[in-house]
Write a protein that binds this DNA or RNA. Structure first.
Length: 468
RNA sequence: GGCCCGUUCGUCUAUCGGUUAGGACAUCAGGUUUUCAACCUGAGAAGAGGGGUUCGACUCCCCUACGGGCUGCCA
């Protein structure tokens, strides 16, 4: 296959960006970006009842957070309704569609009758399919239906699902243009995908059977059928379809919980796709090897434990400045007050250490209390927590680095003693583990950096505090 | 109900007729750390069930069970 790859993500703006939709977008993005193609975005807003601009904005935000960029402007499907209707009329002219004057009541009656006859299934067969145009009732509203083949079968050559064969007699003559003149989704997708030059349709497998009917439209119009790739949906931890009771559904929920976007991308990429033993990788690395053949055929379940682990791995290898930026975005998204210059400075100094053992942003915040909290500390509220944080943080950051000689035990001890005193708190348990940890050992220069982060009390100032 | 898709450790998966069925998360046991983590080492853990085809099936075919999807003048 030659030519540029063109893919698209086409969500309906009825709420937020669903985690499954996010993964679908991610797969399209990886596939396209790895091949120098174009990744387009189309908002399927033809259902005026349920589509809202807020939902569209939420979807765009979700994609932006995930780091998925699309080419060009997002296309509104609704805005293209005239073009859709035009195609419906062209099908009419070509004889691949026809006017159907049947009313909803008649259609229901037809199906009821078939069921009464004991038919195992009932596809509506319009009496107008082969009616003489002369018999058309003038002035009566009609829908335009596709004249679908009744014999034979339609084969979907799917890159994920394989060859899927659907008998044509199980498919009805779908409506392409409603009696009110508005196009139906099934027609709109095909027209839009064709007009936008989409070469690969990568979407949820809830569209697999629909693909057969859509392919009929391509055939009816004489258009080239795109490469199909229907990926399995994501299920909840219990194997059931992902629903509200499983908790977080929107990608923004994950952002709010503090998962780093890189970890999210990594996890979502591996959910339902594999390339040998590749587990932890960057999006660049994924692009280089991502392919449709590696996508599994069975639905995958969300596993928060693994998500967290992957996030921890990504956190550890993240660039400090970028991490700080994402952390601040996280803070802003949760409505927290922005970091002061002093706090930001401290964070940047601490991040190289903090990121090594954190999985999500709240953990980083928690371990940063000792320099995030303003001084003097509010004894009743946060003093204990902060002191606890100080002792934990110092130990976890410093002890691994107590190997080389540069800072002597007395220096460190006196500094910590001063810090504790500054808080108006006893050295207490803070001193105990430290004293033991320091026994007979000394501290390296990197520890000095951490000390600067600690704050602005006199003891630290003596050692060269930069935090004003 | 009909049609379509799926089914390897608890979970995500590798395997594309011949492997001691591999990796990762989780779990358990050690190690490191006088906290919690993180990190390191090790262990247990799988081909839904039943029939075929084959010298040989997780791999191919059929049936059953289970799960999911579609079955709209919704998307």
């Amino acid at each position: 296959m030659s030519g540029q790859v063109v893919t698209r993500f086409a969500p309906s703006p009825t709420g937020y960006l669903h985690i499954g939709g996010g993964r679908t977008a991610l797969f399209n993005w990886l596939y396209t970006r790895g091949r120098g193609g174009k990744f387009l975005l189309r908002i399927e807003d033809t259902d005026r009842e349920r589509s809202t601009p807020e939902a569209t904005a939420a979807i765009l935000r979700g994609l932006a957070w995930l780091g998925l960029d699309w080419d060009g402007e997002a296309v509104s499907q609704f805005a293209r309704r005239d073009r859709h209707a035009e195609v419906a009329r062209e099908m009419l002219a070509r004889g691949t569609s026809y006017k159907c004057f049947s009313t909803p009541g008649e259609i229901a009656a037809f199906k009821a009758a078939r069921e009464a006859e004991g038919a195992s299934y009932a596809v509506f067969q319009s009496p107008w399919r082969d009616a003489d145009p002369a018999s058309h009732p003038p002035g009566k509203p009609y829908a335009i239906r596709m004249r679908a083949p009744r014999e034979g079968e339609t084969v979907i050559d799917d890159r994920v699902q394989g060859r899927v064969t659907i008998r044509n007699n199980t498919l009805d003559d779908m409506v392409v243009l409603r009696s009110d003149g508005t196009p139906v989704y099934m027609l709109a997708v095909v027209v839009d995908d064709h007009d936008m030059g989409v070469t690969h349709v990568i979407r949820g497998d809830d569209h697999l059977v629909n693909a057969a009917r859509q392919q009929m439209v391509y055939d009816a119009m004489g258009w080239a059928v795109p490469v199909w790739a229907h990926i399995p949906l994501i299920h909840g931890p219990d194997g059931k379809k992902l629903s509200k009771r499983h908790g977080a559904l929107g990608v923004e929920d994950y952002q709010a919980m503090g998962y780093p976007a890189a970890g999210m991308r990594n996890y979502l990429t591996r959910l339902g796709w594999a390339q040998g033993d590749m587990e932890v990788f960057s999006s660049r690395e994924a692009m280089a090897v991502f392919d449709l053949a590696g996508i599994g055929r069975s639905p995958a379940r969300l596993d928060f434990k693994k998500l967290e682990h992957v996030c921890g791995q990504q956190m550890a290898r993240a660039d400090d400045a970028a991490l700080l930026q994402e952390l601040e975005a996280f803070l802003a998204a949760t409505g927290a007050t922005a970091l002061s210059d002093r706090q930001r400075d401290g964070m940047l100094r601490a991040l190289p250490f903090l990121k090594q053992s954190a999985k999500i942003f709240p953990e980083i915040i928690e371990k940063s209390r000792f320099f995030l909290e303003s001084r003097p500390l509010d004894r009743d509220n946060s003093a204990e927590k902060v002191l606890d944080s100080v002792s934990r943080s110092i130990l976890s950051f410093l002890t691994p680095r107590l190997q080389t000689v540069h800072w002597t035990k007395p220096d460190l001890e006196s500094m910590l003693t001063g810090f504790a005193a500054d808080q108006g708190l006893g050295f207490g348990k803070l001193a105990q583990p430290l004293r033991a940890a320091l026994a007979g050992r000394t501290v390296s220069p990197s520890v000095y950096d951490m000390m600067l982060v600690l704050g602005r009390d006199e003891t630290i100032a003596r050692l060269g505090d930069v935090a004003s």
